[in-house]
């Protein structure tokens, strides 16, 4: 089984597939990779569990970015009124769910048999503990900036 930290490019590729095919984005560019989560973002996490271990993926953006991506999923445009908080959280969780399915397919041969959990919406940054590590890819889609997060136990992916 590969170290989970090596899966960040797979998460980027899975997100790109979904952003272009289902969120109305023309292009996704990875701007930078970080080892700490960006502050003041909101988004959703979803856990993936295998007998060999567990990890979480997350997608986060600012309020405007979450609105644009969620409206894109719903087939809405920027001109449509903002989604209420509950609908925004629901749609954004579904984005993470879809990305997680693509991610799972991309890492299947290297990850063991990952099972998808249910997504949860959050506001604010993930706070890694001494037992967890975070790898982040910041991606740009026109005016939208988003962070793709991989959270996993230390010792599995720390190189």
């Amino acid at each position: 089984m590969s170290a989970y930290g090596e899966f960040l490019p797979d998460l980027e590729a899975a997100f790109q597939d979904v952003a272009i095919s289902a969120l109305g984005q023309a292009e996704v560019v990875t701007a930078q990779r970080l080892d700490t989560p960006p502050p003041q973002y909101q988004g959703a996490y979803l856990g993936l569990v295998a007998l060999q271990g567990a990890l979480q993926i997350g997608i986060a953006s600012d309020e405007a970015g979450c609105q644009i991506l969620s409206k894109g999923l719903m087939g809405m445009t920027d001109a449509d009124p903002p989604l209420p908080d509950g609908e925004l959280a629901d749609a954004f969780c579904e984005i993470v769910n879809i990305v997680a399915g693509g991610f799972k397919a991309k890492v299947r041969e290297r990850s063991g048999n990952l099972q998808l959990g249910l997504p949860v919406f959050f506001r604010g940054p993930a706070q890694p503990t001494e037992h967890t590590a975070v790898k982040v890819a910041v991606v740009k889609m026109g005016p939208v900036s988003a962070a793709l997060l991989l959270v996993f136990p230390r010792g599995n992916g720390q190189g």
């Binding site: 969620s70 999923l73 719903m74 087939g75 609908e87 629901d90 749609a91 969780c93 579904e94 769910n97 249910l118």
Partner: peptide
Amino acid sequence: DDSKAMRSI
């Protein structure tokens, strides 16, 4: 579907 958004889609 547990997502109202996805049911609409």
